[in-house]
């Protein structure tokens, strides 16, 4: 199933981003005006070590389509 076949579908993607690397990298992407999909929501974490599996399950439980952990 390709995404194109579902025109109008807006997925909900949560990114848990480590403040020191991935969050900073997302800032850098902004600084360079690199465009990406507006469906992405970044939640800042102090470190990827902070990521509790509970949070990922919570997100899926609430209907999120994808979770990206980055750190």
């Amino acid at each position: 199933m390709s995404i194109d076949s579902q025109a109008g579908w807006e997925p909900k993607i949560i990114v848990f981003a480590c403040n020191w690397c991935s969050y900073a990298a997302a800032d850098l992407a902004g600084l360079n005006h690199l465009e990406y999909s507006a469906d992405v929501r970044i939640i800042r974490t102090p470190c990827s070590g902070r990521m509790d599996p509970m949070l990922v399950l919570r997100a899926f439980n609430r209907g999120v389509d994808g979770v990206l952990l980055s750190g």
Binding site: D27, L31, H33, Y36, A38, R41
Partner: peptide, 24 residues
């Protein structure tokens, strides 16, 4: 909450960016 580096600078569509800012 970051609506510049992680929103207005990486999206073009006003409607989408404004909606995203609201949810942020």
């Amino acid at each position: 909450i970051n609506i510049r580096e992680q929103n207005s600078w990486v999206h073009h569509d006003h409607e989408q960016a404004t909606n995203k800012a609201q949810s942020l």
